[in-house]
């Protein structure tokens, strides 16, 4: 078995048409970082860099033959990964660019369900490039754009120079209304530190350290003092984080559950499995850090639609608050039923 650290990290790059995915991709490929990337693109020729590891893909989404309708994978990706693995050692990481209209789920799920893909590669993060000027409109009329925001681990809010401060605050509030957990970076021409988008380990169970909404964290971009033009604006927002406008998105929400009382694993696990089995189509992403009764280990899990993976992570530290936190991001989530179900899992 290949150790997780030896598996090739895969970054999924999504974003609605024209948001700036290609700009970011060109930057990643042209910057002098000493790393070689294999890039799987859907449109040949847009990338102005000569690289024999740029591969055209067809975005063929297949249903798995297991009777689960949302269990879709990218068949072309399975094939391409297979071919790329013949050139192991010739590249350090893989970037999968999706079309503007793509749902990121089948890409992510490919890394969960395909045995061969899983053996050699690991999903690093879903990075969504969003257009500060047009995203608010797209969130109203394009369900794909909303999916991409909801699914993201990292959001690059691009073209901030084309909007006023109030407009920027507005679009950010809309993003946060859908996904308060992603790392958000404001950029012009996708000028973001590459370490902010690559090697994030967002799907690494060992790195699920905190699941707090981003705007509650004071130093979101502590590592952000390199080059960007938006420092001012940025810190200003954080200082007044709680005063931001709050939007509740009509159909895409995040739902956060917590309990200071330990959970009963004999009730929680079946409940969670049942929940994703019945509501998995609506649940885009899930994550949790759990304190089980009679268990000195932190248990962590994460999921994409119906697929879950979880493990004991480490011992609870002395003095660490043994609190369970679970987050779901999804469409039309049955909030009350989920809250009631979770409540039933708490030991009394």
């Amino acid at each position: 078995m290949v150790e997780a650290s030896q598996k090739i990290p895969v970054t999924v790059l999504t974003g609605y048409l024209g948001a700036g995915k290609t700009t970011l991709l060109n930057r990643i490929l042209s910057e002098n970082h000493g790393k070689k990337y294999a890039v799987i693109v859907n449109e040949f020729g847009e990338i102005g860099i000569d690289n024999d590891l740029i591969i055209g893909a067809d975005e063929e989404v297949f249903e798995m033959n297991n009777g689960c309708v949302c269990c879709t994978v990218r068949g072309d990706l399975v094939r391409i990964m297979d071919g790329l693995m013949k050139r192991k050692g010739k590249f350090d990481a893989i970037i999968v660019e999706t079309t503007g209209l793509a749902d990121p789920a089948p890409v992510a799920q490919t890394f969960f369900v395909d045995e061969d893909v899983q053996k050699n590669a690991r999903l690093d993060a879903v990075v969504t490039v969003a257009d500060a000027k047009w995203l608010s409109d797209r969130l109203k009329d394009a369900p794909e754009a909303k999916n991409q925001i909801a699914f993201a681990d990292v959001i690059v809010l691009n073209k901030t120079d084309l909007v006023s401060k109030p407009e920027l605050a507005e679009v950010e509030a809309r993003i946060r209304g859908i996904n308060p957990y992603a790392k958000l970076h404001r950029t012009e021409r996708c000028q973001v530190g590459l370490s902010d988008v690559l090697e994030r380990g967002a799907f690494d169970l060992d790195r699920i350290l905190e699941i707090e909404p981003e705007f509650l964290e004071a130093g979101d971009d502590h590592d952000h003092d390199h080059d960007h033009h938006h420092d001012h604006d940025h810190h200003h927002h954080h200082d007044h984080g709680h005063g931001l406008k709050h939007y509740h998105d009509e159909d895409m929400q995040s739902l956060s559950l917590r309990s200071e009382q330990p959970l009963d694993p004999a009730r929680f696990m079946p409940w969670l499995q049942q929940l994703v089995a019945t509501e998995g189509q609506k649940i885009l992403r899930s994550k949790g850090i759990l304190a089980f009764a009679g268990d000195d280990d932190r248990y962590v899990f994460q999921g994409v639609h119906m697929m879950l993976e979880g493990d004991h992570q480490r011992k609870w530290k002395n003095g660490e608050k043994r609190e369970s936190r679970v987050v779901f991001i999804g469409r039309d989530l049955p909030e009350q039923a989920i809250r009631d179900g979770f409540q039933q899992c708490i030991t009394t």
């Binding site: 297949f62 033959n65 297991n66 068949g75 399975v78 395909d114 045995e115």
Partner: peptide, 10 residues
């Protein structure tokens, strides 16, 4: 006969 190996283990 014609046989195929599938993406699933079958």
């Amino acid at each position: 006969f014609l046989v195929t190996a599938m993406h699933e283990p079958a």
